[in-house]
Design a protein around this nucleic acid. Structure first.
Lengths: 218, 218
DNA sequence: GCAAAAGTGTTCTACCTACACCCATGC
DNA sequence: GCATGGGTGTAGGTAGAACACTTTTGC
């Protein structure tokens, strides 16, 4: 291994749905920096690439390390490598983005230096991480339109209302429930479990299970 | 700069249209390796990232270095960083893809270690470059559907017939000329120059100029 | 005239949008 | 009963696919 002009890091933008005053909102976990530069600022989970791990494994690792979570979807986003990205040495960051299920997101382990923020109200971030989050959000919105990626943000079983709420949270606008239902059913990726979710003061909605295979979400 | 577990390289998949037995075909330039490993094999143009250049500049540079060409479109493709990619040391490759205009592609400078090949008849490639070309081709096909990226493969002025040939070459199937014309015109990114291309033994087609701005092709 | 590609018109279908309306539950 | 979301039906608009047909050139 020779002396290099740049070091390699892997960071991950993690999305999860959380309740925020009665409505579902897209959130992401950030890590407070405990070292210079940008000490005390919030940053994306990440760190140097290890010699024996693939890029994807590195992303999964810093996801697990910082949040204790497992990803329902994990995919490379983009590589950021401008000459000056705010660190003293040159760093090339391969950024991944991940989706975690709400049931899982609720189990994040307690760490004062890790916190979830709504994407539309982030604190100032370290380095160029605001730009990176912007890319990730755009990608998420796009992919929502031509894949069933949204299923990865929900528990194993969910109602079409919940699925629609996820879409509304990501797109930032209300969707017609009737049309949304038809599109979802027509995708052929949902199986009704037969069960219904009781408890609410309305007609109990049917529960569905996703049959999308992760490999087909490219 | 510290000792690193991986070195950083930038490679570029360059696409151009060339005539191949009367019909337009997608071609790409390869470089014959003059060093081990994979000595003598064909490979994508690429090389180590320099400390003072951005990733994009590196891609543009190895495009110019190997072919003398200028890109009409240049965009990051993907980053390949598996632990063993066929080189003795670990290399993380940030791969770009580029489109060059046919008029420009014709001026490639003479170098016995550089040659253009049709994408559907490539020689065996070094490292994991076959997989990389596969990614690039898929991206090209996809982007054809929702952007005006194909304009970047043609000269400044072109006929709708030529544009259609480019699409047919990329998609590998014939397209209905009538429907293609309507779609192209409806895109609002073509201005007729007023001139027509004479010489063929048919009705002389109108010449168009693209008004797409490179920034909008994301 | 004939071949060949340019260019126009028409029809069919699929899908999306908007919106009216009924259904089943908790209170 | 009434409010609330679940779920169905239906009509209009738009875009693409298929294909018939006219136009303009070179030979």
């Amino acid at each position: 291994m020779a002396e290099q002009p740049a070091s390699v890091a892997v960071s991950t933008v993690i999305f999860g749905i959380q309740d925020h005053g009665g409505t579902a909102k897209v959130h992401l976990p950030l890590v407070r920096r405990v070292r210079e530069p940008h000490l005390g600022r919030w940053a994306l989970p990440g760190g140097p690439l290890r010699p024996d791990e693939s890029l994807r494994d590195a992303a999964r690792r810093n996801l697990a390390d910082t949040t204790g979570l497992d990803a329902a979807h994990l995919e490379q986003l983009y590589t950021f490598g401008a000459v000056d990205r705010g660190a003293p040495d040159r760093v090339v960051s391969i950024v991944y983005w991940a989706l975690v299920r709400t049931e899982v997101a609720a189990t994040t382990r307690d760490d004062p230096n890790v916190a979830w923020f709504p994407v539309d109200a982030l604190p100032p971030l370290a380095f160029d991480h605001e730009e990176i989050v912007g890319w990730a959000v755009r990608r998420l919105k796009n992919k929502l339109g031509y894949t069933q990626i949204s299923h990865a943000l929900l528990p194993e079983e969910f109602t079409l209302g919940q699925l629609r709420e996820v879409h509304e949270a990501i797109l930032g606008r209300r969707l017609d429930p009737a049309n949304f239902r038809r599109r979802a059913e027509a995708s052929g990726t949902l199986t009704p479990t037969g069960a219904h979710q009781a408890g609410a003061r309305n007609r109990p909605p049917a529960l569905y299970r996703s049959t999308v295979r992760e490999e087909l979400l490219t």
